[in-house]
Amino acid sequence: MSPPASNDLSAGGGGTLAVPPLTGGPRIGGGRTARRGLSGRFVVGPTLTGGFVVLFLSVVVLIPLAVLVYKSTGSGWAGFWHQVHSPFAWSALKLTVVMSLLVALINLVMGTAIAWLLVRDRMPGRQFLDTIIDLPFALPTIVAGVTLILLFGPTSPIGINLAYARSGVLLALLFVSLPFVVRTVQPVLLELDRDMEEAAASLGASQFTIFRRIILPTIAPAMAAGTTLAFARALSEFGSTVLISGNLPGKTQVAAVFIYGKIQEDSVTGAAAVSTVLLAVSLVVLVLLNVIQLWVARRD
């Protein structure tokens, strides 16, 4: 892979409506071009900028999250566990994690297939497909929920009713997480050195062997990063599941919807406890993405 390897993943995000996903953006300026230059010398500039950035981040992100964690354990660990273990909280968390794993797995396969089709198959209408792949990023989640329940709800014109069922939740999560794997794998596939494949073919490798031995190892980090992002997204999803799930506690209620319900009931400790669990899983995901990033960086 060429030097922007660590950017390969970023190109995925940077290249689309996708959040330049975690993978990509992160580690901006990984030090590659770390030039000593003007940077250090104008003391006022960076200090002011830095102050603003840190202040903004603190007010908007860091302090609220810290307070959330603090509140969730306000009545001690026992209280925290009690909240998390309450039947509906526990089943919501379990459903969310299981669904998210399933969503990640399906995305891994379908996302890679879609990316492959977009890059390698000179199919008519490819451009159009390439554009609409990002729709789930641009579409408000509640609107996604409305559209999905119209197609797959009680009034389905195609006769498929998944409303108030776990399969409906799965569908909503698949919709919102669709672009992640596509957009992380696509740029890597694009930059894939065809010479390697031709060299392998000249050495007698079959198409299948070329895919397994040459292509797959190259796109694996991107697949892993995209899948992780899809998992994170599914884990935290709220808007698109509100309508189609019917929010049946213990059956179709996902964690985010459970938290929302608790907030509406003014049961802050319950909401905060489950939120903290979600937050912890999110952090694990972030760490995982950084590990993938390092994996890519080391390989190049």
């Binding site: 901006i28 307070v67 935290s236 709220f238 802050v268 939120s275 972030l286």
Partner: peptide
């Protein structure tokens, strides 16, 4: 700092709302 900037991608919007309310 670089890592923290990515935090919002992984945090559920509802959790964001709750945290701000708190």
């Amino acid at each position: 700092l670089d890592a923290v900037i990515d935090l919002p991608i992984a945090v559920s919007p509802v959790v964001v709302g709750l945290a701000l309310t708190l």
